[in-house]
Computed example of a mutant assay.
Amino acid sequence: MTMTKFDTPAYQGEKDFQNQPDKLKEQFLASWSNYVNYCTINSQMGNPWTSLYDHPRSWYYDPLVTPVIPASSNTVPIQWTAFPNRINHYFQGLFSHTFGEDATDKLHELADIGPDAFSQKYNITLDVPANPCDPNNTQTKSFGPKGPRGWQDEYCEWSVTRDENGNITAVDFTHENPEYWFHLWRVSPDLVLSLYQEILSQPNIKLEDLYLYDANNNPVIVRETGKPAYNPINKWNSGSATTGLSGGAIHLTSPPNSLGAEIYLGLLPLF
């Protein structure tokens, strides 16, 4: 048998819309399934223009088209390390030489506060190869990806709350893809607002805080809906430090941490 639709992760859509009109819920669930199907088809296509042997990806199927019954013979456990492994890859040796026994703690601190703050605090340059696939290329570039939490790029991001003495009092982790929230916003911005307030325990969050603004500080209007666009790195979902005025981790924000990238990378050819 074939699947009829793609469900939301952990059936979260059913939970988020449990107190909403059925029409809104069905609209959201249908939109979500269509988008996941698009990502699946795109990943099956691969990249025949710039990646050798990446098309077609005939070993992957679309469960909305191809019948399949999961069994022990065709499934494997998912293995995943949430810590940004590129930090270990690029800086473990450097930090062992520079910080000695504190190297592991410093790697964790880098993942926490980010390369800019870490470089300034310890007066250290965090450059990486410009082309890691070419060992003869000696050019370097700043460690990235860029963005308020760009360095947290293993599909897990977090934001830390500290007291006046710098002690950690709470850590918010998220591995929710941003597309889920874009779809939520398209159906009901008010629901997005209420979820922000609930998840972050911040009843003072306003709908306007979540708008995308242009250079003149005017809300960017989506032509399709006539309503303000959603800003995925608004002040309540930005950076790795949480205060009473800003910060928090609602969903992923690092450029590589998108649903399309997750599905696409999961289908890379094993050559």
Rank of each mutant, 00 (worst) to 15 (best):
M1Y: 03
M1F: 14
M3D: 07
M3E: 10
D7L: 04
D7A: 13
T8E: 03
T8G: 02
Q12P: 00
Q12W: 08
E14K: 13
Q18T: 09
Q20D: 10
D22A: 14
K23D: 15
V36L: 06
V36N: 02
V36C: 04
N37F: 13
Y38A: 10
Y38M: 11
N42W: 15
N42C: 07
Q44N: 06
N47E: 15
S51R: 15
S51I: 15
Y53G: 00
H55Q: 11
Y60G: 01
Y61Q: 13
D62F: 06
D62K: 10
P63T: 10
L64R: 12
A71W: 12
N74Q: 11
N74T: 09
V76I: 13
W80H: 14
P84K: 04
R86P: 05
H89C: 05
Q92I: 08
G93K: 01
S96M: 10
H97R: 06
T98H: 06
G100P: 07
G100W: 12
E101Y: 00
E101S: 14
D102P: 00
K106C: 12
L107A: 05
L110K: 05
L110V: 11
L110P: 08
G114H: 10
P115M: 09
D116E: 12
A117H: 03
F118N: 08
F118P: 02
K121I: 04
P129R: 05
P129W: 04
C133P: 00
N137V: 10
T138H: 07
P145V: 06
K146R: 13
W151A: 00
Q152E: 00
E154K: 14
Y155I: 01
E157Q: 10
W158F: 13
W158T: 02
T161L: 05
T161H: 00
D163E: 04
I168R: 03
T169L: 01
A170I: 02
V171E: 04
V171Q: 06
V171D: 02
T174N: 02
E176H: 07
N177D: 11
N177W: 14
E179D: 15
F182A: 02
H183I: 06
S188D: 15
D190F: 09
V192L: 09
V192N: 08
L193V: 02
Q202H: 15
D209L: 02
L212S: 13
A215L: 06
P219A: 05
V220A: 04
I221N: 09
E224F: 11
T225F: 01
T225M: 01
N231R: 00
P232A: 01
I233T: 11
N237I: 03
T242H: 00
I250N: 01
H251Y: 14
I263A: 05
L265M: 15
L265D: 14
L267V: 11
L267I: 06
L268P: 13
L268M: 13
P269L: 12
L270N: 10
L270F: 08
F271T: 08
